[in-house]
Computed example of a mutant assay.
Amino acid sequence: MQVIITDAWMARSRAFHLNGFKLILAILLASLVLMLVSAGLYHWVFMKGAREGWPVIGSLVRLVSKDEIAQRDRYVKENIEVLAKRLGEMQAKMLQLESLGERVSGLAGINPAEITVAPGRGGALIAGRDLSIEELDATLASLDGAATKNADVMTVIESRLFEQKIKKMMVPTQQPVLDANLGSIFGWRIDPITGRSALHTGLDFPAGVGTPIYAAAGGMVVTQEYHPQYGNMLEVDHGNDLITRYAHASKVHVNKGDLIKRGQRIADVGNTGRSTGAHLHFEVLVQGVPQDPQKFLNAGKGLGTERSASSKASVLQR
C-alpha cells in the first residue's frame, strides 16, 4: 500500500510505502489513541456533569451512589445482627457464670451478697429489632465490666478455698500407722507397768519394729529427742496451738525445724522408752491439753469417704 501526501505550500509530495505489518500496526496505534482520547473525554464530561449537576449525569450518579449506600447499609446491618446474637450468647453465659460464682462462694464461706456482680443488668439482647452501634457498645462495656468483676470474685473464692484446703491439710486426720489394729485407746485405764489406774493420753498402734510412721498432718517438727518416758519422740506443730506427738520410735527420719507434709514418713515403729512392746504412741494436744486422737482420725475417715464418692461420681460422669 502506498500513501502520497502533497504539501500545497511547498509544492512537494511525499510517498509512504506500507506493507501489511506496518498497516496493521498503524491501525492498532490509531485505535489505541482514539480509545485513550475517548476515555479521557468521557471521564472529563462525566466528572464535570456530576459536579455541576447536569440532569442526566446527575441522576445517574445519584442512582449509583444510592445503590452503593444501600449495599453498605445492608452489609452493616447483617454484621450488627450477627454481633448482637453473639453478645446475647455471651450475656447468657455470663449469667450462668455469676450463678456458679454465687454457689461456689457459699462453699467457700463467702457471703454472696458482699460480692454481687453488677446487679440489675438484665438478660440477653432482644432479638427482632434493630440495634444501634451505641447499644452494642454499651453492652460490650457492660460485659467487660462484668467479666472483670467476676474475675476478681473468682480470685477471692480461689484464695479462700486454698486457705481452707491448707487448714484441712494441717489437721491430723490421717492414721499415722497404716493397716494397724488399734491397741489402748484414749482415757483412763490400768497402767500395764504399775497396775494402777492412769490416764492414757493417746492412742497405741501395735506394729512390728521398723513399720513406717507417717505424719498425720503437715507442719513443723518442734521436738526431736529421746525422752525417758516416750523414748525416741517427735512433736509436730500444725499451728493454732495444735501439736501431734509420736513416741517409742526405733528410728527418726526428720530433724527439729524440718517442714513436713501430710503422709510423709517421719519415723519407724519401735519399743524405746517406757514401753512393754513395739508400738506407736500417738497424741494430739490442743494448747498443751491432750485430746482424743480418735475424733480427729474419724473425721479423716469421713473426708476420705467423701473424696472416694466424689471421685467415683466424676468417673461415672466421664
Rank of each mutant, 00 (worst) to 15 (best):
F205G: 00
G218P: 00
P212M: 03
S31M: 13
G263E: 07
L182K: 08
P112R: 04
W188G: 05
G20A: 13
K149T: 09
T276V: 11
Y230G: 15
L203H: 06
R103A: 09
T173V: 13
T305D: 13
K93N: 04
S250G: 15
L143M: 10
I190W: 14
R318K: 14
G273S: 12
M1R: 14
Q174D: 14
G187I: 07
V269G: 14
V33T: 03
E283S: 04
G273F: 03
S31V: 10
V254T: 06
R129A: 02
G49D: 11
E134M: 04
V289C: 02
S314Y: 09
K149H: 07
T305C: 10
L242N: 13
E235K: 14
V315N: 02
S275G: 11
I4A: 13
A309T: 12
D191C: 13
I185A: 12
K251Q: 15
Q294T: 02
S132K: 06
I110S: 00
H279L: 02
A141G: 06
L143Y: 01
A207L: 03
L203W: 05
D258P: 08
N19T: 06
Q71I: 04
L140W: 00
K48R: 15
T276F: 02
R62W: 02
G231S: 13
D191A: 13
V289H: 13
A141N: 10
M10L: 15
N255D: 12
N79S: 05
H227T: 09
W54D: 15
H279T: 11
I213A: 00
A313Q: 11
T276C: 08
G277H: 09
V171D: 01
A138H: 05
A309D: 13
M35V: 15
K48H: 14
D152K: 03
P172C: 03
E81K: 03
Y246K: 11
K93Q: 14
D152S: 11
G109S: 05
A70I: 02
Q287H: 11
G88P: 00
D292L: 05
V3E: 09
A309I: 07
V153A: 08
V286A: 11
V315W: 02
Q164A: 12
L34F: 15
R274G: 01
